[in-house]
Design a protein around this nucleic acid. Structure first.
Lengths: 132, 132
DNA sequence: CTTGCTTCTGTAGTAACTACAGGATACATA
DNA sequence: TATGTATCCTGTAGTTACTACAGAAGCAAG
């Protein structure tokens, strides 16, 4: 499939049609081609870009941060040192998030296991997690 | 230290004072004790709870989801089967997030390495990530 | 050519903050 | 004790990131 309307883009990505138009207004998605009747036409590149944005939002990145990540890619002509610093900064953020999520994952799996055996877990999340 | 005012809770957790009061209004933080003059007094338990909430928000969980996670802990008297299902559901969500973040981490680190060598990276994020 | 689905613009509502305004309280120091 | 500075209070209004219509127009099938 080469191009698609907004409805199909929405179905493929799980992003509401209204949100797609919102992202366009905010400049996170590029202004798409239009059909003769004025309907938006999207490419598979747009599908991938929107998937990326959607995942990032689900991971707690703001639209501003996502723009910053995307601009690493969008501009082919940039100062490499700045890109390097920005990239390292983002990677550090992401590593921290992974650490936190792994802690949560471990505690929740332990809870589920305890629960499975008919025991009531004794408040493990708050006690063992995120004290610092 | 045993108890503290809202300012210190804010400093310890990195959560704005206004946001702490907002969480209280929304029922995510319990209504705290008050000093004779009517000022909020917080315990170290509150510090831990707020840290947890703050981290979860940064990881893309909604306040509703956080409430659901916290209620696994808050209610000591619940049906174990439901808790088990909810816990497994949350753990699954978290595992997915970890997978996505690891992909991002890998690509960003590769970008930084390329950049380090003076090469301009050729659009790796969108191309290699989140196609599905 | 009509019925139903999709899309359009525009506006208004919601979630989760964030930023004051205007006033009271606490507390260290001259 | 006075006073200045910091902190806290309530309340309201603004911001970000959606989300949900309303009303009109386009498109596709029977």
């Amino acid at each position: 499939m080469k191009t698609q309307a907004i409805g199909e883009l929405s179905r493929k990505t799980g992003v509401h049609i209204e949100t797609i138009r919102y992202y366009e207004r905010e400049g996170i998605l590029p202004t798409p081609m239009r059909s003769p009747a004025g309907r938006r036409i999207y490419s598979d590149e747009d599908v991938r870009r929107l998937n990326f944005i959607h995942k990032c939002r689900g991971l707690g990145f703001s639209l501003k941060e996502i723009n910053s990540l995307l601009s690493l890619v969008d501009s082919g002509d940039f100062a490499c040192k700045e890109v390097h610093e920005l990239t390292i900064h983002h990677a550090g953020q992401i590593t921290e998030k992974i650490v936190d999520l792994k802690k949560m994952e471990g505690v929740l799996q332990a809870m589920a296991a305890q629960c499975n055996q008919g025991n009531v877990p004794q408040c493990p999340i708050i006690d063992s997690l995120f004290d610092a």
